[in-house]
């Protein structure tokens, strides 16, 4: 078993008067693709935001590469090698696609300074990025924005990718495109923690799965286990994969 790159220990998160996470324990192994499933309001997005330091774990520990990052600032966490694709994609609408990518490429001061080989690889994953390179990102469709959000997160090598519901609101063709891109990404040994509600999307990518409910992890194991066990799906997610195929 691979050693955990990320480990959450008893993480509680409060947002104002609301107690959202109630002691989350989660491990994400190096090179693994882990999917965090759960109904709306289960605490999945809060978990990602807490890892990123956008909300504070109190109490609780977030170990990343052996360092507790629970009290570190968001920029410092990002600089330690975590990339984040938020649910709203976080696209800078008034900037062009090129400028969005340049902002994400911390080591490049100019567009020419971005790693050309990596950029070509990204263009291969998402040809729309090349096509609309000079266009304002605000004009892109929802699917194109999602591609840009993921492309931006991988413009430079990162140790861990946090992705929040990338399939949300996307057309089936774009979802297939996204799945293919994530499969390509998996081949590069990138560690991914992906939040998803679309089980059909999640099962095609995940090595591991954790299911959340009411701010807690209520199940964790391999994706294959969950896919093969309809009873477990019904119990944890209130659905049967067979019924959705």
């Amino acid at each position: 078993m691979s050693s955990p790159l990320l480990r959450l220990e008893g993480v509680h998160t409060h947002i104002g008067a609301y107690h959202i996470l109630h002691g989350v324990d989660l491990e994400v192994g190096q090179g693994e693709f882990t999917v965090l499933l759960g109904r709306n309001g289960a605490g999945k997005t809060t978990t990602l935001r807490t890892i990123m330091g956008l909300w504070t774990a109190a109490p609780g520990r977030v170990w990343f590469g052996g360092v507790d990052i629970a009290t570190r600032s968001t920029p410092e966490i990002a600089r330690r090698g975590i990339a984040y694709v938020p649910e709203n994609m976080g696209i800078f609408s008034d900037l062009t696609v090129r400028e969005n990518m340049l902002v994400a490429a911390r080591s490049a001061r100019r567009a020419e300074g971005m790693d050309a080989t990596r950029l070509e690889w990204i263009f291969g994953l998402f040809p729309a990025i090349r096509k609309f390179w000079q266009h304002p990102a605000g004009l892109l469709s929802g699917g194109q924005k999602q591609m840009l959000a993921v492309a931006r997160a991988i413009i430079e090598p990162r140790k861990l990718l946090l992705v929040d519901e990338p399939s949300k609101g996307l057309a089936p063709a774009i979802i297939q495109n996204m799945i293919a891109a994530f499969r390509e990404l998996k081949q590069t040994d990138t560690t991914v923690l992906l939040v998803e509600q679309n089980f059909n999307f999640a099962r095609q990518l995940g090595d591991k799965v954790a299911v959340m409910d009411d701010g807690r992890i209520v199940h964790s194991g391999t994706m294959a286990e969950l896919v093969d066990d309809e009873g477990l799906q019904q119990k944890l997610l209130g659905l049967s994969l067979a019924a959705h195929q």
């Binding site: 690889w121 291969g124 040809p127 096509k131 609309f132 194109q144 774009i174």
Partner: peptide, 15 residues
């Protein structure tokens, strides 16, 4: 890193 992903048709549309 080899480009291997096809573009979805909808990805070509832009207002």
């Amino acid at each position: 890193m080899s480009p291997s992903v096809a573009t979805a048709p909808a990805a070509d549309a832009l207002p």
